[in-house]
């Protein structure tokens, strides 16, 4: 097994730190990017900017955290793009009729419902491979996206047009204690819960084992179906949280606003080092992967690289990350 399964926050001495750096070039990449960026833009290391980076984490980190569990179990969820769009429009349109708090709750339940529907489809069809889950959730993404479009007739909904209070959204966007913004707090709470699920519960172990080898997991009496329900519900709810945070930040809801997050979330998870074949990884690594992506975006923006080249680079990084991970695995198994 590779070193990336080592528990983060284990006993740290200089030797393990060096080993960790050697086997995880991602930290080197982040350090290099941080150094470059702080040279180009001296403001980079101020507390305000770091908080800004946490805010840029925004929707992506929530979607990516949910995706991590799905990928660890050896599946994929391409429907989060559709779920984010659907949750966003449902939440914003309901503010006037039921009030802001219930609207957010209904939005989150829509995310949960979508996740449960995904898992029901996958379990009932007996899909066990990543490819099957990929295509089924892609199809569902079309359905959720079309449902969102039908619901608002393709019209963008503006948060600021609401007649009742939208204080809760303002708080999520700009509120905070000290330098810790509310969205950062939501992120930390989600991260803590997911980390505990992943490391400290039977369900978490079952998810990792499902991803390691589905046949072996079934023969060992691990409830694969329960793992599938958990991962897709978590993914749906996390996408919904991401949608609410996104709506608070951009103050509008568009049925297609979730589309870019589908590939970016996978990218963040994979760059973080969670193996696409499942059975290996951690939500902590996804945080690191997302951080790297955000820093890279920052850096490229400061260097005034065109957005199209940035888009291209994202694809290239995805290919490189997976390829390097494979090379690393092959050298370890030798």
């Amino acid at each position: 097994m590779s070193a990336s399964t080592q528990r983060l926050g284990g006993r740290v001495n200089s030797q393990t730190a060096i080993n960790l750096l050697k086997s995880n070039p991602i930290f080197v990449a982040i350090a290099a990017l941080a150094v470059v960026t702080s040279f180009v833009e001296p403001q980079f290391l101020t507390g305000e900017n770091l908080n800004n980076i946490i805010r840029q984490f925004g929707t992506l980190i929530f979607a990516a955290l949910g995706m991590t569990l799905v990928i660890m179990a050896g599946f994929l969820d391409l429907s989060i793009g559709g779920i984010i769009g659907l949750v966003a429009v449902v939440t914003v349109t309901l503010i006037d009729t039921v009030g802001q708090g219930p609207a957010i709750l209904i939005g989150l339940s829509v995310g949960l419902g979508c996740g449960l529907l995904n898992s029901a489809l996958i379990i009932s069809s007996g899909a066990l491979t990543q490819a099957e889950s990929l295509f089924i959730t892609y199809g569902m993404s079309l359905v959720y996206g079309a449902a969102a479009l039908m619901y608002v007739q393709g019209v963008t909904q503006f948060l600021t047009y609401s007649k009742t209070s939208i204080a809760l959204f303002d708080t999520i966007n700009s509120g905070g204690i000290g330098f810790l913004s509310v969205s950062a707090m939501i992120f930390l709470v989600c991260l803590a819960i997911l980390y505990v699920i992943e490391r400290r519960t039977y369900a978490g172990r079952a998810i990792v084992l499902t991803g390691g080898n589905k046949v072996a997991a079934r023969l060992a009496g691990i409830p694969i179906s329960r793992s599938i329900v958990i991962i897709y519900s978590v993914s749906g709810v996390m996408a919904a949280i991401g949608a609410v945070v996104l709506v608070s930040r951009v103050t509008l809801a568009d049925p297609t606003m979730g589309t870019p997050y589908m590939t970016q979330a996978i990218l963040a998870v994979v760059v973080g080092g969670t193996a696409l074949i499942g059975g290996r990884g951690s939500v902590m690594w996804t945080v690191v992967g997302t951080l790297l992506l955000i820093l890279l975006n920052n850096c490229l923006n400061l260097l005034e690289v065109s957005t199209y080249v940035q888009y291209m680079l994202r694809g290239a990084i995805l290919i490189m990350a997976i390829w390097l991970d494979r090379v690393k695995q092959t050298s370890v198994s030798k």
């Binding site: 994202r314 990084i317 390829w323």
Partner: peptide, 29 residues
């Protein structure tokens, strides 16, 4: 990358699609 290096083809080719679209965007603005 996907056959000789034995990586997951759909994610590699998904990335390749993004790269190619990016090149197209850059070429045509």
């Amino acid at each position: 990358v996907s056959v000789y290096q034995r990586t997951e083809p759909f994610i590699i080719t998904l990335g390749m699609g993004i790269v190619l679209t990016g090149i197209g965007l850059q070429l045509t603005d």
